[in-house]
Amino acid sequence: MRFRDGTPGNTTLFIEFRDTATNTTGWLSVGTIPAYDPAVTQQYRLNGSVPTGRVFISGVVTDGGAVDGIVFGLFWKDAVGSYHLLKSNSSTSYGSSDFYGMWPIGVSETSFTSTYLPQVTDGFARNQSYMSIAGAKMLNNGYHTMTVY
């Protein structure tokens, strides 16, 4: 699940994964991210790979608003059946609230599902999407590292 605020363009999110069988890493490009709505949801078959917590963002262009960048949430089940959640986060601050769900990018769950997720019709999937992104922090261009639990 990912959402972007800023000038429309070719903003891309890359997520680093580690293949647990070979202990090698690689990058997954999750594609061009549109500004505002709709938010983008995708499913991937991880085949035993796990996120390392490193991401790279390119193409964010500000539109002069309070905050610009992208937020994302990854929710996955590992090889032994445990669930994990990784949300965008950073120690960098914009000087205002830059967490998804509070001003200036505040949105209620009802508004989120009707405005930003019209493509998701299953109630459980909508709840999972909202849970994965609410409280995620807006990130700008560059490399970012988060702790994976």
Rank of each mutant, 00 (worst) to 15 (best):
T7G: 00
F75I: 00
I133Q: 05
T145S: 11
V40G: 02
M146K: 03
N10M: 07
F17Q: 09
F17Y: 12
A134W: 12
Y143I: 06
T25N: 05
P34I: 06
N140D: 15
V67K: 01
S90R: 04
N141A: 06
K137G: 03
G95F: 02
F56G: 11
R4W: 01
A21M: 02
R126I: 03
S58E: 13
G6D: 06
G64M: 08
R54K: 14
D98Q: 12
S91I: 10
D68C: 08
Y44W: 14
M138Y: 03
T145M: 02
L139I: 03
S90E: 08
R4K: 15
T115C: 01
F112M: 10
T115A: 10
N10G: 04
W27Y: 10
V120H: 08
T110F: 12
A66F: 11
R54M: 05
N47D: 14
N23G: 04
V120T: 10
G53R: 01
S82Y: 09
K87V: 00
F99K: 09
D122F: 04
T22M: 03
V80H: 07
Q43E: 12
I33L: 15
F3W: 12
Y143P: 01
F112S: 13
V55C: 00
Q128M: 14
F99D: 05
Q119H: 14
I33C: 06
G135F: 02
I33K: 05
G142W: 13
L85V: 11
L86D: 00
Y44K: 08
N89K: 02
D37A: 15
G106V: 12
I57N: 05
A21S: 12
T20I: 00
G101H: 06
T20Q: 13
S129N: 09
D37R: 13
S88H: 01
R126T: 09
V80W: 01
V61C: 03
S111A: 15
L13Y: 11
V71W: 00
S29V: 02
I57L: 11
G106L: 10
M138L: 15
V40L: 13
V30R: 08
A35K: 08
V120E: 10
S29R: 03
L28W: 09
V60Y: 08
V55P: 00
T41D: 01
I133G: 01
E109T: 06
I105E: 00
R54W: 04
Q119N: 09
A136E: 07
S129I: 07
G53A: 02
T121Y: 03
N140S: 15
Q43D: 12
D68Q: 13
G65F: 02
K77H: 08
F99T: 15
S97D: 14
G135C: 06
L85C: 01
F17N: 09
T52S: 04
D63S: 13
T110I: 04
D37E: 14
V30L: 14
G135R: 09
L46P: 10
S82M: 11
F14T: 04
V61P: 01
L28C: 07
L85G: 00
T110R: 14
G123D: 12
N127Q: 14
G73N: 06
L28F: 07
W76Q: 05
E109Y: 13
P38H: 05
E16T: 05
Y149N: 14
I133K: 08
G26N: 13
Q43G: 06
Q43V: 06
G31P: 06
V50R: 15
A35L: 03
L13R: 09
N141L: 12
T32L: 10
A79L: 00
T110D: 15
P38C: 08
E16M: 02
T24R: 11
